[in-house]
Simulated assay, not measured.
Amino acid sequence: MPSLTQRLLARVPARLRPALVRHRRLVKFLLVGNGCFALTLLINYGLRLTVLDGKPVLALTFATVAGTAVSYVLNRRWSFRATGRQREALLFLLVSAVAIGVNDLPLIASRYLLNLREPWVSPFTQELADFLSGMVLGTFVAMLFRFWAMQRWVFTRVEQP
């Protein structure tokens, strides 16, 4: 019986399969990232609309920490299939702490340097600027940093498929 991965790969056009197989670590990392992005988005707006109303940077930081914890488990077990554990958790925490800061910087710049917040802009413009700067731009830049740093320093000993 074919595995789930084999069944999904069979649905991909034949000309794309070699590239997906060759870059499978990146594909898995991006799939984990998409799931964690959705989780972060839900937590971020759940916090912003309730207990952290008026504190968007703090809400994004908490949401990103939660998404990062889930991504550690999924990336370790599935994307990178890491085998070494000596310094891995500490290095992951250090890389993630830097990445959380990288993720927050565009939102901080949008809100406090460009003043894209009430009363200088409408509530809709503020929310749109927060989403685009914090959730889209911040997440994208942090994702690039994380993939590079995880491969370089954290998950250096991986199982061969």
Rank of each mutant, 00 (worst) to 15 (best):
E159I: 03
A66I: 10
V154H: 11
L47T: 04
L20F: 14
W153M: 09
D104E: 15
G33W: 00
Y45T: 02
Q6I: 00
C36I: 01
R25Y: 00
R146W: 03
V95L: 00
T50V: 10
A129L: 09
A38C: 12
W153A: 05
L128H: 07
A38G: 10
L90V: 13
W153S: 10
G35E: 06
N44T: 15
Q126M: 07
K55G: 02
F92W: 08
T68F: 11
R85N: 14
N34C: 12
R25Q: 15
P123L: 13
S110M: 06
N75S: 13
D130R: 09
F140C: 14
S3R: 11
Y45V: 00
F155P: 04
V65D: 06
P56F: 09
R111T: 14
A97H: 03
F80M: 07
N103Q: 15
L26P: 06
L8Y: 06
F124I: 00
Q6W: 05
V141K: 02
R48S: 05
P106K: 10
Y72R: 02
R87D: 13
C36Q: 01
T40R: 12
R77Q: 13
G54T: 08
F145S: 00
R146P: 03
R48N: 07
L41S: 09
V57P: 04
R117S: 13
V32Y: 13
L20R: 11
S122N: 01
V73A: 09
L144A: 14
P161L: 02
L52F: 14
P18S: 11
S96G: 12
T64Q: 07
G67S: 10
F37M: 04
D104G: 00
A66W: 05
F92Q: 04
V51Q: 06
S71K: 03
P56E: 07
L49S: 13
S96Y: 12
V98R: 03
S79G: 10
M1G: 12
L60S: 09
L16A: 14
V102P: 05
R117F: 09
L26W: 03
E88P: 04
N34F: 13
N34W: 02
S96L: 10
A109H: 00
L58C: 05
F145V: 05
V73P: 01
A10F: 01
M135A: 11
Y72K: 00
N44E: 04
C36H: 02
L114K: 08
S79E: 11
G84F: 02
P18A: 07
F145C: 02
Q126H: 08
F140M: 15
R11S: 12
R81W: 07
F124L: 15
N103E: 09
R152W: 12
S71M: 06
A63L: 07
L114T: 04
R22T: 04
A97V: 00
A82V: 02
R11Y: 06
F145R: 02
V73Y: 10
